[in-house]
Amino acid sequence: MAAAQRHRLAVAGLGKIARDQHLPALARSEAFELAATADPAGGLPEVDHFDALERLLAERPDVTALSLCTPPQVRYPLARAALQAGRHLLLEKPPGQTLGEVEALRALAEAAGVSLFATWHSRFAPAVPRARDWVAGHRVERVRIAWKEDVRRWHPGQRWIWQPGGFGVFDPGINALSILTAVLPRPLRVVSATLEVPENCAAPIAARLSMTDDAGVAIEAELDFRQEGPQTWDMAFEGPEGAITLQAGGSRLSLDPPEGAPAMIGEYDAIYRRFAELIGRGESEVDVAPLRLVADAFLVGRSRPTEAFHD
Rank of each mutant, 00 (worst) to 15 (best):
L184E: 05
E220T: 11
A221Y: 08
I179R: 08
P187Y: 01
D224R: 07
I179M: 14
R226G: 11
I219Y: 00
T232P: 00
L209N: 00
N200Y: 10
A202R: 12
Q227D: 09
P198I: 12
A215C: 11
D214R: 08
R208V: 09
Q227T: 05
C201L: 02
G216K: 05
E196L: 14
I219C: 10
V217A: 02
W233Y: 15
P187D: 07
A215S: 13
S210R: 13
P185D: 05
R208N: 10
P185I: 04
E220G: 14
Q227A: 14
L188C: 10
L180C: 05
R189F: 01
L209S: 05
T181F: 02
V183D: 07
A203M: 15
A207P: 07
L223P: 13
P198H: 13
L184G: 09
L209I: 07
A218H: 09
R186Y: 13
P198Y: 09
I179C: 08
P198K: 04
P230F: 12
I219P: 00
T232Y: 03
P185N: 03
T181S: 03
P198W: 08
D213Q: 03
E228Y: 08
P204K: 01
P187W: 04
Q227C: 14
E228I: 04
T194Y: 04
E196P: 00
E228G: 15
D213A: 03
E199M: 10
P185S: 09
G229K: 09
N200W: 12
D214Y: 02
W233N: 10
I179A: 03
V197C: 12
R226M: 14
Q231D: 12
R189I: 00
D213C: 01
P230H: 10
V190T: 12
M211A: 13
A203C: 11
V183P: 12
